[in-house]
Design a protein around this nucleic acid. Structure first.
Length: 433
DNA sequence: TCTGGGGTCCTAGGACCC
DNA sequence: TCTGGGGTCCTAGGACCC
């Protein structure tokens, strides 16, 4: 048996935990650059605001309904996510963190215990300890747990926990679920299925196996088998190391000079290097890309990418920057207004399996420097120490006009109102606080 | 004026091998 | 007229997820 625990409106809920004035109000959290909606409270959903909708399209709604608008604050969300999962692990230690706001739990080995009751306690505990509301679905496969979670979110009387029913009751439930709401069935496949009369989860589950594999693929087939209660997907306690690492950003303002682009590329290479070292890997291939604004009707369009294969796989930031720069130089064309750029690292493998070069004459002389760099940035905050090539001016920097403080990780960012005498007195003598 | 970021897996087709 | 059989590896593109 699997449980899927899913945080309700996660980013919006995180913001509410630390700013109770957001309670009961429509709340939006925006993408990087404050461009699109990436999270909505229930009140915001009720206003008809769509997921991914550009903010400029809903300016009027925001004004009329006094919608609270926040930039995304991933430092806060990551930390809240960690708290939620840590709490959940008290209720089943076998946990897979599937995304920032979802976790699968293995619910086997609970004997005759009432799992629904157990999950209700889990839900209440997460709410009380972290302030985050969650829903939990239970099913004999991951896909069924997902489906049960879908039901839990929509049923008021479920108390936020639903076990996928079996038999006739299960059929009835599946018959009411749109095939496009099944985990693993996206827009395109849903359209294909509907065109052939398969509109509900029940119809999909009962479809012909060979037909499904032919029209979708084995992934679609697995989804179908999972709906039948045949497990094809298993719990991944340890996330496998990333096979590719991407760092990219849209620019707050168009980038028109090589200097600004160069700084941006160096910054992405730096961040990608950190990610790489964090998982103990080295990368052998680096791709740089840049593009003008695709939405613009007036700007001339240009998009290009360049790939470099390193003689020796590396995790050294300075080396990554050097390669990224030379790749960027190959595709840079003066005269365009660039909107976005990024880099991707691939050819990734564990540092200790790294293939040496036959004529390699470089030694990892900077490995120790990277360790120190990472340690300083970990303890004193990201970006405390960085290569000078990232620049000081940072005109290309992302727009983030409505970001809340990093309440749980950066004391120095808190507004004065937070640091009340009462609070200070309470915490002054508590060790480990 | 204004439109996110970061991933995975599968398949088809081409190039190549004997 | 008529031209085999069995593989691997790589890449681009398309699907999916949050």
């Amino acid at each position: 048996m699997y449980a899927l625990a899913d945080c309700n409106n996660f980013y919006a809920s995180c913001e509410r935990v630390f700013d109770p004035s957001l309670e009961g109000r429509p709340v939006l959290v925006l993408s990087n650059n404050d461009g699109c909606v990436v999270a909505r409270s229930n009140e915001a959903k009720a206003l008809g605001i769509g997921m991914g909708q550009p903010v400029f399209e809903i300016r009027d709604i925001i004004r009329e309904h006094a919608v609270a608008v926040l930039s995304s604050n991933y430092t806060l969300y990551d930390d809240m996510s960690r708290r939620v999962f840590t709490t959940l692990q008290r209720f089943s230690p076998e946990l897979e963190s599937y995304s920032i706001d979802e976790a699968f739990l293995d619910m086997d080995g609970f004997g005759g215990r009432d799992l629904v009751a157990h999950c209700r306690v889990a839900r209440a505990t997460v709410q009380q300890w972290t302030g985050i509301p969650i829903s939990i679905g239970l099913g004999s496969t991951k896909t069924l747990a997902k489906l049960a979670n879908h039901l839990a979110k929509r049923s008021a009387k479920s108390g936020g926990v639903v076990m996928m029913p079996r038999g006739i009751e299960g059929d009835a439930a599946c018959g009411k679920i749109d095939v496009g709401d099944v985990w693993g069935i996206g827009r395109r496949w849903a359209r294909t299925l509907r065109a052939h009369g398969i509109r509900t989860a029940l119809q999909f589950r009962n479809a012909d196996e060979r037909w499904i594999q032919r029209r979708l693929n084995v992934v679609g087939l697995r989804t179908m088998l999972e709906l039948r209660g045949i497990p094809c997907l298993h719990l991944e306690r340890q996330p496998p190391p990333k096979q590719s690492i991407v760092r990219s950003r849209s620019f707050a303002r168009p980038v028109e000079t090589w200097n600004a682009m160069d700084e941006a590329i160096a910054a992405y290479a730096t961040r990608a290097g950190e990610k790489l070292r964090m998982q103990g890997s080295v990368a052998g291939v680096l791709t740089v890309y840049m593009t003008t604004n695709w939405f613009s009707r007036t700007d001339a369009r240009y998009a290009n990418h360049a790939t470099i294969e390193f003689p020796v796989a590396t995790d050294d930031t300075i080396t990554l920057i050097r390669h990224a720069r030379s790749a960027a130089k190959r595709i840079w064309k003066q005269g365009f207004r660039y909107k976005k750029a990024g880099i991707r690292l691939s050819g990734i493998h564990p540092r200790h399996h790294a293939q040496l070069h036959l004529f390699n004459d470089t030694t990892p002389a900077t490995a120790r420097a990277m360790q120190v760099l990472d340690a300083i940035n970990r303890s004193m905050g990201a970006g405390t120490l960085h290569p000078a090539s990232l620049g000081i001016d940072r005109q290309w920097l992302t727009r983030r006009n409505h970001r809340s403080p990093r309440y749980t990780t950066r004391w120095d960012e808190l507004p004065p109102a937070w640091i009340t005498p009462d609070r200070c007195r309470k915490h002054r003598h508590s060790p480990g606080d």
